[in-house]
Computed example of a mutant assay.
Amino acid sequence: MSGRVPRIREDIDIDGQRVALVREGLSIAFYMRQPHELMASAVLRALERYRQAISPRQPGWYVDYSGDWQPVDAAGEAVVRQRLLAASALVELIERPDSVTGVAFKYQGRSKAVAGFEDEERESTCALEFRLPIEFLDDRGPEWIRSFAIDLGRELPWTSGHAGLSLEVGAWSRALTPRLREVTRRHPGFDLVHRLNRLALYLGTKLRPPAWLNFLGPPVLNELGGAEALRSRLHSPSTQVESLSPDRAVVSLGPAPEAGDLEAGDTLPAYRELARVLEPWLYAHKGEWGFFTEAEVRQWERRFL
């Protein structure tokens, strides 16, 4: 299955060891408007599900408040748990501190004491991301990934979410920008998230661009008229709309994630159809994104329109 996914790797050699700076992979993300303290236990349970699912591989390092990587040993495990159960949380776990590998967990949980949850006009939200290695497409199959993504979100009060192909960047440098610009312009099916904690400040109830799996909840799904009304507006034969509850649904764009290839004429029409339907609710980032200019970010976010 992953044979249809282009290999996007940027490596360097350090003392005879290859270190990946950029890697293609899979990302599962959820965005939640409820304050962190109301769902801290659910986030912790989701992390445990993730760890069990990817075993024997594990995110064995966490970043401390100084920005340094520390091992998730017994002491580190206690730190991670303490952070996740606190009033607000900022947690990042990875498999290796020196190389992107496709295994990572990131969470930005904002407290109700933070401006934004008491005022509906504010845009802050809680953001959660799980990463899977691209090899899981072959090893476990896309249906396993789809079921796993739905299971991860089952207890979370998400307003939106997505799962699909994504570029994992260890450290976005100016030297990497031409390669990232090339890939994102040619292969629109790849997502690219820079600084999840910043995204959490501004996303609110808006939606990220379409991905392979699109989780839609309140208020957007209600404003669309519900799952049945949304289904009636989507005509691509590869699109599936599944109701998960009265006010939540997942839209699957095909049986497996696709990168697309604009140079080969593969424009991902099902993604474009969904983008047109969701356009009034799509998020527009303000300012730069890594080393992309604001104009480049705007063009990339609207790549399906």
Score class of each variant (00 low, 15 high):
L278F: 04
L221P: 08
S238I: 14
A175H: 13
G164M: 03
P210H: 00
G225R: 07
L221A: 00
R198Q: 12
S245I: 06
L203D: 02
P218L: 11
R231T: 11
H194L: 14
E168M: 06
P257Q: 06
L201K: 14
L253D: 10
L180V: 08
L244D: 11
L224R: 02
L165Q: 07
F215N: 01
E263F: 09
V193N: 12
P188I: 08
A227F: 08
G260I: 11
L213V: 03
L234E: 03
R185G: 15
L207N: 06
L180T: 10
L253K: 01
G226I: 08
G254N: 10
A275K: 00
A175I: 06
V250M: 01
L278P: 07
A249R: 00
E182N: 09
W172H: 13
D247A: 08
R272E: 14
G217T: 05
V241N: 02
P269G: 05
L192A: 02
A229C: 06
L268T: 07
V193D: 12
V220T: 10
H194G: 04
G260W: 13
G204Q: 09
H187V: 11
S232Y: 03
L165D: 05
F215Q: 00
G161Q: 02
G265H: 11
T239E: 06
R198L: 14
D266G: 00
E273R: 01
V193F: 02
S166H: 07
S238Y: 10
A163E: 03
H162M: 00
L244S: 08
V193K: 03
A211R: 07
D191L: 04
D191S: 13
G170Q: 15
R186V: 12
S166K: 01
R174E: 13
G226H: 04
L207H: 09
S245K: 05
R233Y: 03
R231D: 12
W172F: 14
L180S: 03
A249D: 04
G265R: 08
G161S: 02
G204A: 10
R272K: 12
W172Q: 06
S238A: 11
F215G: 00
R276E: 15
G204Y: 12
R272W: 04
P209E: 03
A270C: 12
G170M: 14
Y202P: 00
E242G: 00
R248T: 13
Q240A: 05
E242K: 00
T267S: 13
D191I: 04
G189F: 06
R208K: 09
